[in-house]
């Protein structure tokens, strides 16, 4: 077996070990590579900045534990910005595990401690609402006919923030972070197309190519592109977190992948060339 043939069949254990090392090394010794913020994240940031103080934002935590490493840091940065701007947050979850992500996020944001926010007055959590687009249509159409209590079971009549909120007309902005393509499109259909509400979206990087046309066509005012978008938002909001730490790791690991792709292609062509010459 020639060297080229060996390179086309590197054992996956070797590849994985190199990938893990490529993640550990920059985590222990950060490279400090500069963060170049993207248009989509800046658009997200600027949209929130332009909202008047006291505006009500409907925010969907549409991801679970699998999506948390990618979307959680961006969610934390987004909440920091919104609480700093004194915006009111009506939070819901279209993902079953979104209810488990909510406390993780709030442990980091600490709205009461950091911003003096009060639950029920400045933000509420409605919990998981099943049905994806049906849930979105319900919340935007007639919130109070759909939801009678918050996640903890408190009647919405006892939550001052929801007193004057009945549906889409009462939200200044709708924002979501999701790992589900149906949810990402669903909010565009229901919030933008149906009610013409300003809409911000966030999704895993692997979904960006299919969701970006909504941003390009002006249906999404901003788009958070996975961990890269989260790092941008942490940078823009001045709340560095896991995503900025991740930037070096991702750059280092992606470079390794490029090297693997180059080695794989070169060795493939060289192997084929050698076989052609032999025959």
């Amino acid at each position: 077996m020639s060297v080229w043939e060996k390179l086309t069949a590197v054992p996956r254990e070797v590849v994985m070990t190199l990938v893990v090392l490529a993640m550990i090394i920059p985590a222990i010794r950060p490279l400090g590579l500069p963060i170049l913020t993207g248009d989509m994240s800046r658009a997200w940031y600027n949209t929130v900045e332009q909202l008047p103080e006291g505006s009500v934002v409907l925010f969907d935590i549409g991801y679970g534990s699998g999506g948390y490493p990618s979307l959680g840091p961006g969610n934390i940065a987004a909440f920091h910005q919104m609480f700093e701007k004194n915006l009111k947050l009506v939070i819901m979850a279209t993902a079953l595990e979104g209810t488990m992500m909510y406390p993780l996020i709030m442990e980091e944001v600490k709205p009461e401690e950091n911003y003096g926010a009060v639950y029920g007055e400045d933000y509420v959590f409605l919990g998981y609402i099943a049905g994806e687009q049906t849930a979105m249509a319900g919340v935007l159409g007639d919130l109070k006919s759909l939801v009678s209590t918050d996640y903890q079971g408190t009647p919405i009549s006892q939550l001052p923030l929801l007193e004057n909120i009945n549906g889409a007309d009462d939200f200044a902005l709708v924002a979501y972070l999701t790992t589900a393509g149906g949810v990402a499109e669903g909010w565009v259909y229901q919030a933008y197309s149906q009610y013409n509400k300003p809409l911000l979206g966030g999704c895993l990087s692997m979904m960006t190519t299919s969701i970006k046309p909504y941003y390009d066509s002006g249906q999404l005012l901003g788009l958070m592109d996975g961990i890269k978008g989260a790092a941008d938002l942490e940078f823009l909001t001045g709340h560095p977190g896991d995503a900025i730490v991740s930037s070096d790791i991702l750059s280092f690991t992606q470079t390794l992948v490029l090297v693997f792709i180059a080695i794989g292609n070169i060795s493939f062509w060289m192997t084929r060339k050698t076989k052609e010459e032999e025959s």
């Binding site: 993640m23 985590a27 222990i28 490493p69 960006t208 190519t209 991740s246 992606q254």
Partner: peptide, 28 residues
């Protein structure tokens, strides 16, 4: 799309690597 998928998967995994190094081993 494939490139974004790789970034997305690594984005998920590096979150756990940071957790292991920072929260568990506490070396970063």
């Amino acid at each position: 799309s494939f490139g974004n998928t790789i970034m997305s998967r690594f984005g998920m995994y590096q979150g756990r690597i940071i957790f292991l190094l920072r929260d568990w081993l506490q070396i970063v």
